[in-house]
């Protein structure tokens, strides 16, 4: 049974992430984490006519790699928690059409990976499932055509804009006792809206949600930032990350060990991604390519991953609504901590 500490659910017998995989596209293959991906694809169209189908292919490649590493067939899956940025989460829907296991569709925008892992962990911790898959993705092209402009349209990005990652991440979770990286606690965030309306400054729109969830987490669990080897935010980018550090310092909880997945996935100085990466695939890929391997190796003992999402739509944006944000946190340990 999980223990409730404020908004945080702590698992005395932590379920584990037994296997994981990250796949990415061309820009990701030129980034600093390239060597740690399971697969990288320079042709991001996967030979499909539509980018939506290409994103589904990307997910399926990722899931195949994850299941292979976990040593199970797709028929062995008890449940999948998944979502993506496409309207009605269609990339995941079509992937699950092929996968065929029970499916819980999620929409948490760029926070989906933490949301999925948290739910899968909760199900596994209760012993409700033996093999739970959590995955998400984003595809630059599918996101551009849905949220911004046609890909061949000429436009200049503002310095605060972020680059939607073409990437996917998948995690296979099992109940306590199995080998893997333990999920020590999960925290579902509360929606925060501080009246940011600039769609080219998502990091700023999502920062208050990240700060709110962090404060809830530290208060609920009685921990401090320095109890962790690192605290990762999902995709705040350079602007949002700087704002988060400023805000947390103002709250009296400075974050000396904070890093942002959006700034890790790309080299913002040379890759022309403006303020950094974004998209559901950004934190998913960084989790699976960068964070989980280090926990597995024992290089880190305790890490907090906070994936942030912006919950507006094209319609609400055009209607002048501000951008609500959300952030879900997953606390991860190294294998010895879990036992």
């Amino acid at each position: 049974m999980a223990i409730r500490r404020g908004d945080t659910l702590v698992f005395p017998k932590p379920p584990v992430i037994a296997a994981w995989a990250a796949v990415g596209g061309k820009k990701e293959s030129e980034g600093p984490l390239a060597a740690y991906f399971d697969q990288l694809f320079t042709d991001t169209s996967f030979g499909e006519d539509g980018w939506e189908a290409a994103e589904s292919d990307l997910q399926q490649q990722c899931i195949s790699a994850c299941l292979r590493k976990g040593g199970i067939e797709r028929t062995g899956l008890d449940i999948a928690f998944a979502g993506d940025l496409q309207a009605q989460c269609t990339a995941s829907n079509y992937t699950l059409r092929a996968l065929g296991c029970p499916y819980v569709g999620l929409y948490g925008a760029c926070s989906t990976m933490a949301e999925g892992v948290a739910l899968a962990a909760a199900f596994a911790a209760q012993g409700l499932v033996g093999q739970a898959l959590a995955f998400t993705s984003s595809h630059f092209c599918a996101a551009e055509r849905q949220f911004r402009t046609p890909l061949d349209y000429g436009g200049k990005r503002t310095p605060t804009a972020q680059w939607t990652a073409t990437a996917a991440g998948a995690c296979l979770l099992r109940p306590a006792g199995a080998a893997g990286v333990p999920v020590l606690s999960i925290t579902f965030g509360r929606v925060q809206d501080f009246a940011v309306t600039d769609i080219n400054n998502m990091g700023a729109a999502m920062m208050p949600a990240a700060a709110a969830t962090l404060l809830q987490f530290f208060k609920g669990t009685g921990t401090r930032p320095t109890d962790f080897d690192a605290i990762f935010t999902g995709d705040l980018g350079e602007v949002g990350a700087a704002l988060l550090q400023e805000q947390m310092a103002n709250e009296g909880v400075p974050l000396p060990n904070h890093q942002d997945c959006g700034c890790l996935l790309y080299d913002t100085a040379t890759q022309q991604v403006q303020a950094g990466g974004s998209g559901a695939g950004c934190s998913a890929a960084v989790l699976c390519a960068h964070i989980l391997p280090r926990l597995q190796q024992g290089a880190w003992r305790r890490v907090l991953l906070l994936a942030t999402g912006a919950l507006m739509s094209q319609t609400t944006f055009l209607q002048g609504e501000s951008i609500p944000g959300i952030a879900h946190a997953v606390e991860l340990g190294c294998p010895e901590v879990g036992v």
């Binding site: 169209s45 092209c141 055509r145 046609p150 073409t166």
Partner: peptide
């Protein structure tokens, strides 16, 4: 004649 292309 043309197809939508990735920007990188």
């Amino acid at each position: 004649l043309a197809k939508s292309k990735d920007q990188n």
